[in-house]
Amino acid sequence: MSIQHFRVALIPFFAAFCLPVFAHPETLVKVKDAEDQLGARVGYIELDLNSGKILESFRPEERFPMMSTFKVLLCGAVLSRVDAGQEQLGRRIHYSQNDLVEYSPVTEKHLTDGMTVRELCSAAITMSDNTAANLLLTTIGGPKELTAFLHNMGDHVTRLDRWEPELNEAIPNDERDTTMPAAMATTLRKLLTGELLTLASRQQLIDWMEADKVAGPLLRSALPAGWFIADKSGASERGSRGIIAALGPDGKPSRIVVIYTTGSQATMDERNRQIAEIGASLIKHW
């Protein structure tokens, strides 16, 4: 067993022997300050990975656009099909120029040879490739089937209704393509630590998230040396920005953090900075 597999395998073990964890309200002060700075709603939740206990939250049951954070859930659904023998990570999918949508930095380079399901999930999570996400959605039956998968997991909140890039419209009070911080955190925890996926698939999912290449300005920018993070960011219209992450010190994840914001007129750089500052406060008061 590799060191990485050993780390994931021990998560349920540590759950039975973990020391108590305590929240620090200073982080919530920073979350509220971020709302003021951005002139927008901010949703935040911090969940103990082992016990599932909510350590701190702000607007945990308000809806926010999922943006590209849905791609982790999508690849979780794909992996569940792999575990059930209904899909193969090595299966090659061919597509055409007509399938390409905006922001497809990986898939646009493989029009001649296609990409495997594994490569598409990697592109969707690590590079947030939109065409990769659409091709993967097709393999499971579309957005409604992803919503059904989540319902079967016990998540009756999170929903995907449209494809890339339309799902990023982020219209106020529109429940399409939205989640709540509490629902997303719970669902992510189930995918990473529960029995829904095999150990190999849980490890694959967290490996893809750990290799995320487009979330550098967010929580990763505040991460001390030696800390672990596996994450997925998202951005969409109407000043929306978000990130879902499993992180912790000593090279292993111990908490789930979900941050969403929407309705801001601030620049992308400012939205990134506010999320990074929330992360810095979280780490300082860990």
Rank of each mutant, 00 (worst) to 15 (best):
M268D: 07
C75W: 08
W163H: 06
G234S: 04
I275V: 07
Y103G: 07
A15T: 15
G216E: 10
L218K: 01
P60F: 03
L167M: 12
R41W: 03
A211D: 13
T27A: 02
A15V: 15
E61D: 12
F228Y: 15
R220H: 01
T198N: 12
Q86V: 14
T178R: 00
L160I: 12
E175P: 14
R241Q: 05
M66L: 15
A9C: 11
T112W: 12
P253T: 03
P60M: 13
L19G: 15
G194R: 07
S57R: 09
H24R: 06
L218S: 03
R202A: 12
T131R: 00
M153S: 10
P249L: 02
A84L: 15
P25T: 09
S236Y: 01
S264I: 03
L38M: 10
D250Q: 12
R176L: 08
V106C: 13
E166T: 08
E210K: 10
T69S: 02
A15W: 15
E169N: 12
A124R: 00
V214D: 03
Y260H: 00
P253Q: 04
L111I: 15
L135R: 02
W227C: 01
L47V: 14
L219N: 01
L192F: 11
V117I: 10
G242R: 00
L38C: 05
E87L: 08
I11L: 11
Q86E: 13
L218V: 02
F228V: 03
P143A: 02
E169S: 14
L38V: 04
K284E: 10
G154V: 01
T126V: 09
T138G: 15
R92L: 15
T179A: 06
T186M: 15
S254M: 13
D174A: 03
E166D: 12
T112S: 14
N134D: 01
S221L: 06
R189Y: 14
S128N: 00
F149N: 02
A34L: 05
N168A: 07
A200Q: 15
D161S: 03
I244C: 03
T187N: 07
E164V: 00
G90I: 09
R202D: 01
A77S: 11
S80D: 09
V157D: 10
P172W: 07
V21S: 03
Q265S: 14
E46R: 01
Q97E: 14
N173D: 14
K252H: 10
R241E: 02
L218A: 03
I54V: 15
L160C: 15
V117G: 00
D231I: 03
N98A: 08
Q88K: 14
M180C: 04
E102D: 15
L74Q: 00
V8E: 10
V214M: 11
A133S: 09
L135W: 00
D250K: 10
E102A: 14
A9G: 13
I229V: 04
S80A: 13
L197V: 02
D129V: 00
H110R: 09
R202K: 12
L150W: 01
K190N: 11
I256A: 01
V214K: 07
K144A: 14
K284T: 11
Q203G: 07
D33G: 12
L218G: 03
V78R: 00
A182S: 15
R118I: 07
Q88L: 13
Q37R: 13
E108D: 11
I283L: 05
L197S: 01
E61R: 14
K30T: 09
R81M: 07
T139D: 11
I244L: 04
I11H: 06
T187H: 01
T126E: 15
E119D: 08
E175M: 12
T267G: 12
T69G: 00
S201I: 09
A222G: 06
F13W: 12
F70G: 03
T147I: 04
Q37G: 08
M268Q: 07
S96A: 13
L223M: 13
P172Y: 11
A15Q: 11
L167A: 04
Q204H: 11
G85K: 12
F13R: 11
H110N: 11
F228T: 03
I140A: 02
Q4L: 06
R176E: 04
Q88G: 11
L136I: 06
D48V: 01
M184S: 00
M153V: 08
M153T: 09
F64Y: 03
L137V: 04
G216R: 05
R162L: 02
H151Y: 05
M115I: 09
S254V: 10
G251S: 09
D250Y: 11
A225P: 15
A183F: 05
D177C: 01
T69A: 00
L79P: 00
L196V: 13
I3F: 15
D33E: 13
M153R: 04
F70S: 05
L150P: 00
F6S: 11
W208Q: 01
R176C: 06
S57A: 14
S281H: 08
D250T: 06
T126Y: 09
A148R: 15
I243R: 00
T187C: 03
L219F: 05
G234R: 00
A77T: 07
M153H: 11
L55F: 08
D83V: 01
L219D: 01
A200E: 14
S96I: 06
I283R: 01
M127Q: 11
T178E: 00
E169G: 08
S281E: 14
S281T: 14
N272D: 15
G43W: 00
F228A: 03
S264C: 10
T198E: 09
K190L: 11
M1I: 08
T126K: 04
S57G: 07
W163S: 06
I11V: 14
V157G: 06
H94L: 13
E26K: 06
K32M: 10
R41T: 05
A276Y: 10
R238G: 13
A200I: 08
N168M: 03
L19S: 14
S254D: 12
E56C: 05
A235Q: 06
L199V: 15
S254I: 06
K32T: 06
E145H: 13
S240N: 15
N50S: 14
M127G: 03
G85R: 11
T186I: 09
R220V: 01
L79G: 00
R202E: 07
D48A: 05
P165H: 03
T107S: 13
L247R: 00
L188T: 06
M268K: 06
I54S: 05
G154Q: 03
P65I: 02
L219K: 01
L197M: 10
N168I: 04
Y103E: 04
L74M: 07
A222K: 13
S221I: 07
A222D: 10
K144E: 14
V8I: 15
A23V: 11
M180T: 14
C18G: 13
I171G: 12
S221G: 05
P172E: 13
M180N: 15
F22S: 12
Q265A: 14
D129G: 00
T186P: 04
E108K: 07
L218F: 02
F228K: 02
R7D: 08
P12M: 14
A40V: 06
W227M: 01
S51R: 04
L196Y: 15
